[in-house]
């Protein structure tokens, strides 16, 4: 089993993967294959690309992303995912909380006694 397939990365991914997806859409729409390729480039983020589609489907139902079918210069039409205003707000909220969260985890890992940093 590779490093991305263990229990710890899989547990951690559950909470943060959707925000990584939202972050990837921050600078403009992307189609599925493109989005999944960029996620997979960071090995710890995904093991099976196919599992991202159910996540995207939920984000769409929650109104955080929107989809639009666009013709492609080569090949079949592609479904593009766009960040909605709601998605941008959720990403902003996560971006605000994440540093505190990361620092808190680092704090416990580096100072197991709970001493103030």
């Amino acid at each position: 089993m590779n490093e991305a397939g263990g229990r710890v990365p899989s547990q951690l991914r559950k909470g943060v993967l959707e925000y990584c997806v939202l972050a990837l859409l921050r600078d403009g729409p992307k189609y599925g294959v493109e989005l999944l390729g960029e996620l997979a480039a960071v090995s710890v983020m995904t093991t099976s690309q196919g599992t991202i589609y159910p996540l995207l489907s939920r984000l769409r139902r929650e109104g955080l992303v929107d989809t639009r079918l666009r013709e492609s210069p080569s090949g079949p039409p592609r479904r593009y995912y766009t960040l909605t205003a709601g998605g941008r707000a959720a990403l902003g909220e996560f971006a605000g909380v994440w540093p505190l969260f990361r620092d808190a985890v680092d704090h416990f890992l580096n100072h197991p006694q709970g001493d103030p940093v």
Binding site: T47, S48, Q49, T51, P54, S57, R58
Partner: peptide
């Protein structure tokens, strides 16, 4: 292969 095995993909959809 990159999409992952059918059972894993279906399980992730069920989990959502």
């Amino acid at each position: 292969n990159r999409l992952g095995d059918a059972r894993t993909v279906a399980a992730s959809a069920l989990a959502e």
